[in-house]
Amino acid sequence: MQGTETRAAEVGGQGTAGDFFALLKPRVMSLVIFTALVGLIAAPGGIHPWMGFVALLAIAVGAGAAGALNMWYDADIDALMKRTAKRPVPSGAVLPGEALGFGLTLAIGSVLVLGLLVNLAAGALLAFTIFFYIVIYTMWLKRLTPQNIVIGGAAGAFPPMVGWVSVTGSIDLGSIALFLIIFMWTPPHFWALALWKKINADYSNAGVPMLPVVAGSDETRRQILIYTLILAPVTLLPSLTGTTGWLYTLATVALDLVFIHHAVRVFRVRDGAEGEQACKKLFFFSTLWLFLIFALVLVERALGIPSFPAVLG
C-alpha cells in the first residue's frame, strides 16, 4: 500500500468532494447569499428573477473562491490553531496547489459569469471584493495590524453592494449604507467572540496580531463600545437614502438600543463568569441583530411598505 499512498499524495486526488466544498466556507457563503439577496431586493428598479438567481449564484461562488484562496494562503497559521487545524489544507486532505487551483478557477469563473451575464460593473466589483479579501486582507494586513478585523469586515461588507450593483449597474449611496452596516458591525461582533472564547492564545501562537492579544481586553472592550456607538446611527442611513421606511426605522432603533445595552455591559462587567457571559450575550445578539436588520428590508418589500423620500443622495 505504500506505493499507492505515495502516488495519491504526489498527484493529489485524496480529497473528497466534501473536502472541496469545505474549502468554500459554506457558513460564510450562506451569510453572503443572504446579504447579497437583500442588496438585490433593496436596489431601486428591478431585475428579472432568473438574472437575480444568476447574480446570487455568481456572488456565492465568488465568496467561496475567496474562502478557498484564504485557506490556501493561511494553511500555515491554520495548522497552528485548534479552531482551524482540521481544515482541508492543514489536515492534508487537499494539497495547497489543489486549493489554489480550485480557488482561482472559481474566482475567475464567477467574475466572468457575473460580468458577462449580469453586468460589467457587478463583475468588476466582485473581482475587487475577491482581490481585497485575498491580497489586501489575507496576504497583507491580517498578519500586520491589530485592526485586521476592521479590514476583514470591509471585505465581508461588499456582497450586498455587489447584489445592488447587479440591479442598478452603479454604486449608489443606498448600497454604501448597506456596506457600512456590515463594516461597522464586524469588529464588535468578532471581538466579543474573541473575548468570550478566549481564542487569543491561538492567534498569539500563530503570530496574528489580534486586538485583544496586542492591546489587551480592556482596550478591546473600549473599541467594542466605540464601534457600537458609531454603528447605531449608521443603521439609519438606509432610511435617509430612500431605501427603507417606518417599520425598518422603528425596529432598528429598538434593536440598536439592545445592542448598545449589551456593548455597555461588556465594557463595564470585565471579570469572572459575568464578564464572560456579557461577551457571549453580545456575540449571540449581534448575530441575530444583523440577520434581523437585513431581514427587515426584505419584510418591508414583501409588505409593500413605502420607503422614506431620500434625504441623502
Binding site: 500500500m1 506505493g3 499507492t4 499512498e5 505515495t6 502516488r7 495519491a8 504526489e10 498527484v11 486526488g13 485524496q14 480529497g15 473528497t16 468532494a17 472541496f20
Partner: peptide, 22 residues
Amino acid sequence: MNGQMTNAPFSKEDMARRKKRA
C-alpha cells in the same frame, strides 16, 4: 518518496474519491 513519482496504481478508495469528484 525520494522526490520521484511512483507508478503504482491508485487504491480502490482513491479511485472512488476521484470518480465522485469527476
